[in-house]
Design a binder for these strands. Structure first.
Length: 139
DNA sequence: GCCAACGTTGGC
DNA sequence: GCCAACGTTGGC
């Protein structure tokens, strides 16, 4: 199983919005970046990811699961853009902030730190474990 | 609210 | 195919 990170502005699509969708989940649509799209095409059913709030909050707030693999993005007719569906699995007991991640040497090489604008990105197993623990959930 | 970084677009 | 212009993102 691979791990990922999904970034969202909470004022547009928040963790609470995601939770409200229940087990049906929701399309992670609107991605117009090839790198991010390619990562979504690599995702498989059951893969898990972090849900990150950008802007004012800047913290990982929960864990999501891929519930549909890549398919055309319904928000555009442009067939270049695909997206997956994700559903909320569990919230973090304590959100893990970007500042905390930057302060942790083992996490400093995450795309989140090096490429802050990449909206969908992979998380390596070690980073997954560390951040889950920091968030108060079991990996 | 500002600004820097980056990716995409479009003209040549 | 290159490169300048532009729009968007996200941290501060």
């Amino acid at each position: 199983m691979n791990h990922w990170l999904f970034k969202s502005e909470p004022s547009v699509w928040s963790w609470d919005d995601q939770v409200a969708k229940g087990d049906t989940g929701e399309e992670w649509d609107g991605v117009r970046n090839y790198q991010a799209r390619n990562f979504m095409r690599d995702m498989t059913l059951g893969d898990r990811g972090f849900f990150y709030h950008s802007q004012s909050e800047k913290a990982v707030v929960g864990i999501v699961e891929i519930c549909a693999t890549a398919h055309p993005d319904s928000t555009t007719d442009d067939d270049r853009w695909d997206c997956v569906d994700i559903r909320a699995v569990m919230p973090f007991a304590t959100p893990v902030t970007l500042a905390q991640i930057k302060a942790e040497p083992d996490l400093a090489r995450m795309p989140l730190v090096l490429s802050p604008r990449l909206s969908v990105q992979p998380v390596d197993p070690a980073a997954w474990d560390i951040i889950c623990r920091m968030g108060g959930v079991s990996p």
